[in-house]
Design a protein around this nucleic acid. Structure first.
Length: 424
RNA sequence: GGAGAGGUGGCCGAGUGGCUUAAGGCGCACGCUUGGAAAGCGUGUUUAUGAGAAAUUGUAACAGGGGUUCGAAUCCCUUUCUCUCCGCCA
């Protein structure tokens, strides 16, 4: 979330940038926040004074008792009781108002970076880069859900029996290819300096709030009611939350992590060809990269992450393009996001396989993730993350783009991980 | 799941109602000392937030939340985590 002090000092900028997101009602909420915050601080000041007075009297009472002046002590006690009423009243007002401010802050999305183009939806995203050649397929080429059936490597119906739609079962070479991709991605990320971590796949409420999934967006996560825990929608949540309530030193930067986890998303809604097969699932695998950075370096890091993902896609031989998300398509917590899409030849469409974002201090503010700067003051760090990469659509693209009449070839870079070079 | 014991600063650890934001030690930083280092000595060493140009200073925080009291690290309730024993178990 944005900090109140920032909103207070940069109101015009905040409004201008939020307009790029088409964020409705911004001015109203911002004004309310500023007003209520001023009130809150005035109350706090009164409360502080009352507490100071009460502390003083309490000390007096202690001394009076010690010197045996009980009657005098009782007089002071009465006075102190009155202040106590005032304190408890001020306190409850303060808590109520502060809570209200926080609630309003939760409603405000991150302000977009100045590179973010205006726009309403995905059609307004800017294509900024494109690379790789689109293969010519034989005339009996199939979409991946047909290929999955033909070679018996992914069983969607079986998953439906076990759990429900959107929970596929990978079989044989399909399962091995998944495992190979996970290892391959993790190795590439490690080689680039990202430290591998294994994290819980279930998170508590505080973690969900830290990275912005909670409050308000709980409907997108699976909730384990009996323990009040959530299945992770992405490794971003547990990995970034490793740094919740942490005060770093400047020389701790940069912090780079990579993690493989399954991801669980309820994603209720859409049906049809666009969500067929592997295109949209309730459970899928993903290897994530996460960085915690000094604010001066975070955009540099974002570029590094983008370049890193490029090298993976080139090595896999998948044609891809990079989009800069427009204001209307930008996620709630992000300041700038680049999406990677690979071209699925058999479906004749682009599939999103990675999303790389700088959150600036938006998550850090919720996480209380700070560092001591050169002046010895604590300052919010910047967080970033990206998929490197999401498996199902990479798998779909490989199946579709590498199909031949004799079977599906395995990209060169993966063969040492799969142990086979053809699915037939 | 059952029974018991616990959670104090970067770390160890004292503290069972008032001069305790917290003894003592370790660690760390700076200074003195030294040819240099160690030891020794001295000074300093939490965070958040308000006021102030600053020195400084008010308030809050002893796992989290609530309560008793003029006053809580200390007493009560509750949540949570850790440890020990028992049970179950890959």
């Amino acid at each position: 979330m944005l900090s109140v002090a920032f909103i207070r000092d940069n109101k015009d900028l905040v409004l201008k940038r939020l307009a790029i997101r088409n964020f409705a009602n911004a001015e109203n909420i911002i004004d309310n926040i500023i007003e209520l915050d001023a009130k809150t601080r005035a109350t706090k000041s009164k409360l502080d004074n009352a507490n100071a007075e009460s502390n003083k009297l309490s000390k007096e009472i202690g001394l009076l008792y010690k010197s045996g002046e009980v009657q005098k002590a009782n007089l002071v006690k009465e006075k102190s009781s009155q202040i106590k009423d005032e304190v408890s009243q001020l306190r409850s007002h303060l808590l109520l108002d502060a809570d209200q401010v926080l609630k309003m802050l939760y409603e405000i999305p991150n302000i977009p970076n100045e590179l973010v183009p205006p726009g309403n939806n995905e059609e307004d995203n800017e294509i900024i880069f494109e690379e790789g050649s689109i293969p010519k397929l034989h005339k009996n080429a199939l979409p991946h859900w047909e290929l999955a059936k033909k070679y018996d490597i992914i069983d969607f119906e079986l998953g439906t029996k076990i759990t429900g739609a959107g929970f596929p079962v990978y079989k044989g070479k399909g399962a091995k290819l998944q495992r190979a991709l996970i290892s391959y991605f993790l190795d590439k990320n490690s080689d680039a300096g990202y430290e591998e971590v294994q994290v819980p796949h279930v998170i508590n409420e505080a973690s969900g709030i830290g990275t912005g999934q909670l409050p308000d967006k709980e409907g997108q996560m699976y909730h384990i009611g009996i323990d009040n825990l959530y299945l992770i929608p992405t490794a971003e949540v547990p990995v970034t939350n490793l740094y919740r309530d942490v005060l770093l030193k400047e020389n701790d930067f940069p912090i780079l992590h990579t993690a493989y986890t399954p991801c669980f998303r309820r994603e209720a809604g859409s049906y049809g060809a666009h969500v067929r097969g592997l295109n949209r699932l309730h459970q899928f695998d993903k290897v994530e990269i996460v960085r915690v950075e000094h604010p001066n370096n975070s955009y540099n890091s974002l570029d590094e992450m983008v370049n890193h993902i490029k090298t993976i896609l080139i090595e896999l031989g998948l044609p891809y393009r990079i989009l800069r998300l427009c204001g209307g398509d930008l996620g709630f917590t992000a300041a700038l996001t680049y999406d990677f899409e690979v071209f699925s030849t058999a479906q004749n469409r682009w599939l999103e396989i990675s999303s790389v974002s700088n959150f600036e201090s938006f998550q850090a503010n919720r996480l209380k993730l700070r560092f001591k700067n050169k002046d010895g003051k604590s300052q919010l760090a910047h967080t970033l993350n990206g998929s490197s990469l999401a498996l199902p659509r990479v798998l779909a693209a490989i199946l579709e783009n590498f199909q031949t009449e004799n079977g599906i070839r395995i990209p060169e870079a993966l063969i040492k991980y799969t142990g086979f070079d053809l699915i037939d």
